[in-house]
């Protein structure tokens, strides 16, 4: 079990690094899909079966299809390296390492009260359905309103304006 976790963790960190370092955005997107799939596998290992399925369907499926579609639609070339880039990179790496050095001991200290998992979480799909439709039914319905608003907003933002020049505001 631990070996599987270590393998997945290695793939996850490597693909996350690939997302950040690869120059072609399409390669970054493919690395991100790999990363999302490893997260789904870790969810499954943590007995969150419903979330593992949703992770694959929504994240690796819908959202990443949208991103790859946009990358191909806009036909973006690799970004031009700038002279400032290297200094900024070293600075960011230093910030990241110091952040990790601060927060990993803090995490392990603060969450020591949580035990290592011993008992089974049984039937999480059924249990998730029950808790979503009883205790969290109001946030669940509010989420549908949020998605509706996001759909309308996305259509409004992405459509061409009909009246060029004389319209309100944009273009």
């Amino acid at each position: 079990m631990t070996y599987i976790f270590l393998l997945l963790a290695l793939v996850m960190v490597a693909s996350a690094l690939a997302v950040v370092t690869l120059h072609n955005p399409l390669h970054s997107a493919l690395a991100l899909i790999l990363n999302l799939l490893t997260v789904a596998a870790l969810f499954a290992a943590l007995d969150a079966h419903f979330l593992a399925a949703v992770q694959i369907i929504v994240y690796a499926g819908a959202i990443m299809v949208l991103v790859v579609f946009l990358l191909m639609l806009l036909n973006i070339k690799t970004e031009k390296p700038k002279p400032m880039g290297k200094f900024l990179f070293v600075l960011s790496a230093a910030v990241g390492v110091s952040f990790l050095a601060l927060c990993i001991p803090a995490f392990n200290e603060a969450f020591r009260i949580f035990p290592d998992p011993v008992h089974e979480l049984e039937g999480t799909v059924k249990a998730m359905g029950r808790i979503l439709y009883t205790e969290y039914v109001f946030p669940f319905e509010a989420a549908s309103v949020l998605i509706l608003a996001a759909i309308v907003g996305a259509v409004m933002l992405a459509k061409r304006s009909y009246s060029k020049g004389s319209g309100h505001g944009s273009n």
Binding site: L51, I63, L66, L74, L146, I147, A150, G153, A154, A158
Partner: peptide
């Protein structure tokens, strides 16, 4: 995840 999906739709529309 729900909010991330909504954010993806609106964010990518802004990028377009």
């Amino acid at each position: 995840m729900v909010v991330a999906a909504a954010e993806a739709a609106v964010g990518l529309a802004i990028i377009i």
